[in-house]
Nucleic acid binder design. Structure first.
Lengths: 103, 103
DNA sequence: TTCGGTAGTCATGTTTTTTTGACTTCTTGC
DNA sequence: GCAAGAAGTCAAAAAAACATGACTACCGAA
C-alpha cells in the first residue's frame, strides 16, 4: 500500500457527491424506508432479505456521516437505536417527488 | 445458469430506478459532460483518464436504454456516433440544479 | 493497399463490493 | 447467574464491477 494522495475526488458538481452518498446496493432502499418512519438495525435486516449486517452497518454509518440520517439512542423500554431522516434527508424527499413526476 | 426470475427489481419508487441508471464509476461524470454538449466514444475515453472502452461502452448503452441519452449516427465527414442528452435527460438537469441549492 | 480514425466486442485478470458466519458488548427478564 | 434481544465488529469467501490488451469492422485518404 503506497500512501498516495487521492485526486479522484475532484468533484465537478455537488450532485456527484449526493449520488455517491446514495450509491450502493442498499442505500436507496434504506432511504425510502426511512421516509416511512424511523429504522432499527435488526428490523431493517429482516426487512431487507439478502442483505447482511455488515453492509447495512456500513450503509447506515455512511448515510449518517453524509447527513442524510440521524442516529439516536432511545432511552426507552428495550433501549435501542433509531435511524431517522435528518432535515437534509427530508428536503431530498421533496426533490425525489419532483423527479417522479418527470418520470 | 438456471434461468431464474429476478424478483429483486420490485421497484418501490421511480427514484430507485433513476439512482440505478446513474450508479457506477463513470455514469455521473458522463451525464455531466453530456450537459455540456454531445459526446463521442473515443473523445470520451480520452476525457476520462482511467476509464476503459468496455466500461464506457456499457455505461453509454445503459444510459441510452434508460432514456437518459440518445445515440445518433451523424452522416458527416468522418461518419460518427453522437451521444446527446435526451429530453428526459435535460429535465433531470433542472432537478439537479435544485438539488445543488439544497446542498 | 495500407494506414489512421471511427466505434465498438471479447476473454482474461484485477479490484471493489457484498455476503457469510463467528464473535463481542450491553441491557433486561427470569 | 444466564439466556435472549439490542447493535454491532471482524476475517474470509463469493460475487460484481472494472481495467487491460487483443481483436473486429467500417470508412476515407495517401
Amino acid at each position: 500500500m503506497t500512501t498516495e494522495i487521492d485526486t479522484t475526488g475532484a468533484e465537478q458538481c455537488p450532485a456527484q457527491g449526493l449520488l455517491k452518498t446514495l450509491s450502493g446496493k442498499w442505500k436507496p432502499e434504506i432511504f425510502r424506508l426511512a421516509t416511512e418512519g424511523p429504522l432499527r438495525f435488526n428490523a431493517l435486516l429482516r426487512q431487507l432479505p439478502g442483505s447482511s449486517r455488515q453492509s447495512l452497518a456500513v450503509a447506515l454509518r455512511e448515510m449518517e456521516e453524509s447527513g442524510l440520517l440521524t442516529k439516536t439512542l432511545v432511552q426507552q423500554k428495550p433501549l435501542h437505536i433509531e435511524y431517522a431522516l435528518s432535515a437534509r434527508g427530508a428536503s431530498l424527499v421533496a426533490v425525489f417527488r419532483t423527479l417522479e413526476n418527470l418520470l
